[in-house]
Computed example of a mutant assay.
Amino acid sequence: MSNPSADLPCACPDCSCTCPADQAHQRNGKSYCSEACADLHFQGQPCPDPGCHCEQGMRLQADRFTDSSTGRSR
């Protein structure tokens, strides 16, 4: 039998946070530690944990899909 209040790892890539299952933000069947992580830092929102900077990894991934000369996504 599983413990409903067990801590879950955040599903955001590069996030080091865990969150209690009953407080996790659910998105597409995955658990996240915050709404910012659940939104995959769409608008650059920082992770709420001051020691985690997973939003920086998401920004780097987004930059790979943007043409720097035109600013358009590929």
Rank of each mutant, 00 (worst) to 15 (best):
P4Y: 15
P4G: 09
S5V: 15
A6S: 14
D7G: 10
L8G: 00
L8Y: 14
C10M: 07
C10E: 01
C10T: 04
A11F: 15
P13S: 12
D14P: 01
D14C: 12
D14E: 11
D14M: 05
C15W: 09
C15N: 11
S16P: 00
C19E: 03
C19N: 05
C19F: 12
A21H: 13
A21R: 14
Q23V: 06
H25G: 04
H25L: 07
H25T: 13
Q26E: 12
Q26T: 09
R27S: 05
R27N: 09
N28R: 12
G29S: 08
G29C: 07
G29F: 01
S31P: 01
S31T: 06
Y32D: 04
A36C: 10
A36F: 00
A36D: 04
C37F: 14
A38S: 12
A38L: 08
A38T: 03
H41D: 01
H41V: 11
F42R: 14
Q43K: 12
G44E: 04
G44H: 08
P50E: 02
P50Q: 01
P50V: 03
G51M: 00
C52M: 08
C52N: 04
C52W: 09
H53N: 02
H53Q: 06
C54F: 00
E55Y: 08
G57R: 00
M58P: 01
M58L: 09
M58C: 05
M58S: 07
R59F: 13
R59T: 09
L60R: 09
